[in-house]
Design a protein around this nucleic acid. Structure first.
Lengths: 340, 340
DNA sequence: GAAAAGAACCAAAGCGCTTTGGAAGACTCT
DNA sequence: AGAGTCTTCCAAAGCGCTTTGGTTCTTTTC
């Protein structure tokens, strides 16, 4: 059932039927009712391919997915996707993942914009002076950055959490508990979120005349194994930290294992705080010693990004407003006062 | 730059240019070279919206993503996606995720087929008599099932791993080591993979005149917490198992924690084997006691599914061939002979 | 009561591609 | 040389929608 058939059936022109269906004003309400009714009764659904050829609108939002045999997709992605998908569903949007060579995403961005494959895109895991942000911005497609870049000479719309504030608070608490030697087991510090977290820790330490010791900050892919290795390396030093801030729950698993292997107790010998993006399948309160966390459900961020993308597509949102969400510090058993 | 401009520039008809570009035979090789060259030089890329309107081909594969505030996307998804994406990239395919109400995916399947939004779809986490498989089959869109359904009265193409065989082998090993009371901590047993695994365990036990004790099989969402709870419940019974087979590495984390809480050692008091889909961020060899696993990289499955979808789209594959991959049993420190 | 304004509808022109159904010229065959 | 066969190209008809630029009435305005 296409428009032609439907309009013929109603003895109306395609123009009028199309307008009736799309809510244009220049059509009699009585007629509109008839049209809508007939459309529903015959299950008419406008062909999206035809519509997008005519309008350029696709009803899809895009994401360039870096791939490659050596490239691992972050498990956070799935939670973010849950939120994004949930919102997208309620607004009849689909998400298209365009796989790209991790080292050349630019080609893919250009393609999806040139081809008008999506109405908007989002960018995740931004880095300082992120070229993708600059590119997408000049290409003129609506977009939202999940996270922030830095050192770009223009503004852009983003939704981020207060990574610096979160880790500042976490470190401040540890310092107040008497810890003097902190360490940070961070994610990839080419990404802005990691830079912000380190900055937060340093700022908190500096406020008490302290600093992150040489070699007391690690930057690694967020795997259990890397958490273990980093913790081991740190804890076997002569100036081993008495407290660790950790960028992910998965890494924290490794930290806990390292402490156990070394016969250290948490929080007796080591205080630990990790960032929790809130996974349904791994909860900080269920760690052998309940884990203190800086907490921010990444699923909510996904929903928010979808919401803003939808708003930008429909022209309800414009400009370059960035928003930064506060992060909760949730104190559980894994922190304690430093040994005298 | 569109076809009209390009053909005008070359003083050729749109027909010829189109054919030259799409490799049709009825065009002079010299002309073809000219056309291809000019297209490249001017960066001509056919507009996909127009092409899909004309041909019905979209260059996209679809996946219906169940969503909802209470619906959690499996973290396995991300690994599967890595493989799928990697293959899709090399074949210029995009993946479109259509979010759907978890309780009504049918509407979404019908929509994406009726609208010709994708060239093929894949279905994951199938259940016995899965309605999606039946639906997609009657809708007549190319598809591959990742996993298997059961009790359907028709054949369909699928790629699955030998879950039954894997857990059969695992259980057989445990029995050979002298274990008499096994337990199975399984995933959601409404899904076929879980049913197959249970079947494998039962078959291995039956071969030695044993059986899964009443209450010795749990079926839960695969989270750390559920692994812990299930293990605790099992290990506190008077007829506590001396060996556990577990459907996921994440649940196994919980099992290990439960054992520790109860003062049980692995493998001294409890042998443990889990299934490993191979995550980059959590490895069985890094468990406090290296974990024995049935191992099958889900990323490979993703790539294979993409490959078969591409083949079906281009007509290279047809029919209903199902393929079942063997699973490796990797023995590490977490299994030992049963106490006398 | 003529002119202007408004309401409701329509024919047809895109959107940019593929594909059908030729057509013109060059070649082969008898 | 005339008929048939290739080879190579083209004009035009879709694909199914939206949108431009009307037209035809009916209603309002002075």
């Amino acid at each position: 059932m296409n428009l032609k058939q439907l309009s013929h059936m109603l003895a109306l022109s395609q123009t009028t039927v199309s307008r009736a269906l799309n809510g244009y004003p220049e059509v009699n309400e009585e007629t509109r009712r008839r049209v809508i009714d007939a459309a529903k009764r015959h299950g008419y659904r406008p062909n999206p391919s035809a519509r997008r050829l005519a309008t350029g609108k696709t009803g899809m939002i895009g994401y360039v997915l870096p791939t490659g045999t050596t490239v691992d997709i972050d498990p956070h992605f799935v939670e973010f996707l849950s939120g994004l998908g949930d919102y997208a569903r309620s607004h009849e949007l689909d998400l298209v993942l365009s796989p790209a060579d991790a080292d050349d995403q630019e080609t893919t961005y250009r393609r999806i914009v040139a081809n008008r494959q999506v109405d908007a895109v989002y960018i995740s895991s931004p880095r300082p002076a992120d070229r993708r942000v600059a590119l997408v911005s000049t290409l003129g497609i609506p977009f939202i950055v999940h996270g922030r870049s830095e050192g770009l000479d223009f503004d852009y719309p983003y939704t981020d959490i207060d990574n610096e504030g979160a880790f500042h608070e976490a470190a401040r608490l540890l310092v107040q508990l008497g810890h003097r030697r902190l360490a940070l087991i961070n994610g990839d510090d080419r990404e802005t979120f990691a830079i912000h977290r380190e900055r937060g820790v340093r700022r908190a330490l500096a406020a008490s005349g302290l600093a992150l010791g040489e070699g007391h900050v690690c930057s690694l892919a967020m795997t259990e194994e890397n958490g273990y290795r980093a913790a081991r390396r740190l804890l076997e030093r002569s100036d081993a930290p008495t407290a660790i801030a950790c960028s992910s729950l998965i890494m924290a698993l490794g930290v806990v294992r390292a402490a156990r292997d070394l016969g250290l107790t948490i929080p007796g010998d080591l205080s630990l705080i990790a960032h929790d993006d809130v996974f349904p399948w791994l909860k900080p309160e269920n760690f052998s010693v309940p884990l203190s966390t800086t907490r921010s459900p990444i699923r909510l961020a996904g929903a928010r990004v979808a919401e803003r993308l939808a708003a930008r597509i429909s022209g309800l949102e414009e400009g370059a407003r960035g928003e930064v969400w506060p992060v909760d510090l949730v104190v559980r058993g894994s922190v304690a006062g430093a040994r005298a």
